[in-house]
């Protein structure tokens, strides 16, 4: 029943997404734009990842793949749900037999769908212009697991983050304040290399962004894959799910 409802709902989530061109455009354009900008600015050197040294441009394909999933699942979902909550759309849905589980399933599945599209575009772009390898075989399977676990976890974190959003106008500020510093401290925009300050490495180790990015790297760059990275991301997702289940409200805070 919940699944039928969720997939019925998915059609409308998708329609509404594409009919808001600025949001759809930025979701898709940002990762590619950043990829081109960063590689143009910094893409001529190499970056040390443990014992290996790889092209910065290839590094950015993996980073921007991670960034695009985080944008679609965390940032987009948090902003869109805050907006729906603030405009009483959620309160009205809550008055219908649409279950909360079905609503969230439709939102998360859609965010995952957009993420996979984005990561595929980034990978194709990276393979065409920046020598990134397209994963295949066992690597592809692991890559899909990283994507699904990452997508589910960052979606749960996005839903949990809306609890910190007092109203939809404050949404972009609050959500970016939560995620942007972490993206920098996790080496998404500027590679951490082997010589980053210890406190930054600790922040990167604790939060899920770097672990997720490492998972993406193993697929695109061929660095070693660790299940522990997937586990950390999954644990964060589980924690976020519990927080959201306890504190998420369908009504605006007024």
């Amino acid at each position: 029943m919940t699944l039928t409802l969720a997939f019925g709902q998915l059609r409308y989530v998708n329609k509404a997404f594409w009919r808001n061109p600025p949001a759809a455009f930025f979701t898709f354009a940002f990762p590619l734009m950043f990829l081109v900008i960063f590689t143009s600015l910094l893409g001529h050197g190499t970056v040390d990842l443990g014992t290996r040294s790889i092209n910065v441009s290839t590094y950015y394909v993996a980073s921007m793949g991670a960034f695009s999933l985080i944008s679609a699942c965390f940032t987009n979902l948090a902003l869109s749900i805050s907006f729906q909550r603030d405009t009483d759309i959620l309160k009205r849905l809550d008055a219908t037999p649409l279950t909360r589980a079905a609503y969230f399933t439709s939102r998360v599945v859609h965010a995952l769908f957009i993420s996979i599209l984005l990561v595929a575009i980034t990978a194709a772009f990276g393979a065409a212009f920046y020598h990134a390898s397209i994963p295949g075989g066992v690597t592809l399977l692991r890559f899909v697991i990283v994507l699904l676990v990452g997508g589910a976890s960052f979606s749960a974190l996005g839903v949990a983050a809306t609890i910190a959003v007092p109203n939809a106008n404050a949404g972009p500020a609050v959500i970016n304040a939560l995620i942007l510093p972490l993206l920098f401290l996790s080496g998404i925009f500027i590679p951490l290399g082997n010589h980053a300050p210890a406190w930054i490495m600790w922040v990167a180790r604790i939060f899920p962004v770097r672990h997720f990015a490492l998972g993406m790297q193993s697929a695109f760059v061929g660095t070693s894959f660790h299940w522990s990275d997937v586990l950390v991301v999954a644990l964060w997702g589980l924690g976020a799910l519990l927080v959201a289940a306890r504190y998420f409200r369908f009504e605006p805070r007024r």
Partner: peptide, 12 residues
């Protein structure tokens, strides 16, 4: 229910 303030998705 017709709530006091209600809205639905503006893009549909």
């Amino acid at each position: 229910i017709v709530p006091q303030s209600a809205s639905s998705d503006p893009f549909l």
